[in-house]
Nucleic acid binder design. Structure first.
Lengths: 222, 222
DNA sequence: GCGTAACCCTACGCACGAGTAGGTATGCTC
DNA sequence: GAGCATACCTACTCGTGCGTAGGGTTACGC
């Protein structure tokens, strides 16, 4: 009955693929702002300019929707890195480009990625989904280190490698968080700073220089 | 009317201070297992062997309860570190002892601390509480680095210091997460591995060795 | 031994938000 | 321009879980 006085002349009726992206955009935005539990499906639907049953019809339950967000953003991020890293580059060049790409991506998607990522860490249902992504990253980093080490004829245990990789990844995530909280900061410069910590340290390790705990009283300093 | 066939002969009626600790113990346990939202006040009360209104009477709302948990565990952790770090130690000794204490603490409180910490990062209401704690840690680390740098007559910007400190803290947290997920791992050995990454890198920085981005095509390598 | 304060309970109100039932309009095909 | 699939809506149900009302019981001072 009521004439629609919308700015868009005819009541838009969009194809599924388009609406799905709009919904995901809205979902990422709302999840970021409110957190997983704080976000309501009503608000997401509203923000996407659509009604709730549509969201259920296209993307499923709230949990599935969140996983879909995680998936899309995660894939985009991995892609952003893959786009700039060629396998024939030197180790430090690869690390440098990855950091640049990663922090650049986070800087450009402050609302999207980082907060989504922060969200997912706590929530049980997504821990799996998330650690899978994280594991892929850790493996890439560990592989990189290992390859370089092996090529220099040095031996390391699996565990050593894993811990170092975790440290590197954690450091980068932490810096990414810092970046999100400092909108004025430049991603590229931040990447340089990060590289200073990561590579300078890693290079030492690769060179075989390591730190040993000081001998305690009564212990022989073998 | 019903005779209480409890194992404890007389129906225990404990002083407030004791009950509060029991409640906090239960809360930490349940929050850790289920996450903030997943945990119900009923379950916490039940686990503490008390009824819900008691929890409200003593510790307040769910949010306040969680903050109380965060506070207690956070203080304990800071204390564990403060106990082993003397200000007259050398920088690397301080860092080493802090790492040992921190990872030792996390190792001993796998259920308690780390999961609680993971929880808090996502949830809006506690982001403040948490970043305050985190900031204190970052400041300590940054202060440590700055002091050492200054004592060698070198200058650094506030921001450089902050980013490096964030990276260090993030790396450590990440390794702590790894530790929680690997019950068989030895905290002490993990601390050594962590020290290898952190200190070897930091020592280079302190010595003035830094990494510079490679000049790109068309750019002058000033 | 009696008042009073602290400890402790059962049982509910109530809001909020996930998910759905059932129906309407619009474009597309032939 | 009839038929059909698909986009889309309003208006509900219903579970869950926070927080509380109101009342019972034990210790402790005097």
């Amino acid at each position: 009955m009521l004439a629609r006085v919308s700015s868009t002349p005819t009541f838009r009726r969009l194809p599924r693929a388009v609406r799905e992206q709009q919904m995901l955009d809205a979902a990422v935005k709302v999840f970021s702002r409110r957190g997983y539990h704080g976000a309501s499906m009503d608000e997401i639907a509203d923000d996407a300019g659509i009604s709730k049953p549509m969201v259920y019809a296209y993307l499923g339950t709230k949990e599935e929707l969140f996983v879909a967000c995680l998936h899309r953003e995660g894939t985009r991020m991995m892609q952003a890195i893959a786009d700039v890293v060629a396998p024939d580059l030197s180790a430090d060049e690869r690390l440098w480009r990855s950091l640049q790409a990663f922090l650049g991506f986070v800087g450009a998607h402050r609302d999207g990625w980082a907060v989504l990522y922060r969200q997912a860490r706590g929530e049980q249902p997504f821990a799996g989904e998330l650690t899978a992504l994280r594991r892929r990253i850790v493996e890439v980093v560990a592989g990189m280190l290992e390859h370089t080490l092996r090529s220099e004829g040095r031996e390391v245990t699996e565990t050593d490698l894993e811990v170092v990789a975790y440290a590197l990844v954690g450091a980068t995530e932490s810096v990414a968080d810092w970046l999100v909280d400092h909108p004025e900061a430049d991603p590229e410069q931040t990447a340089t700073r990060m590289m200073n910590v990561a590579w300078v340290g890693a290079a030492q390790l690769l060179a075989g220089i390591s730190w040993r705990p000081p001998a305690r009283r009564g212990e022989a300093s073998s």
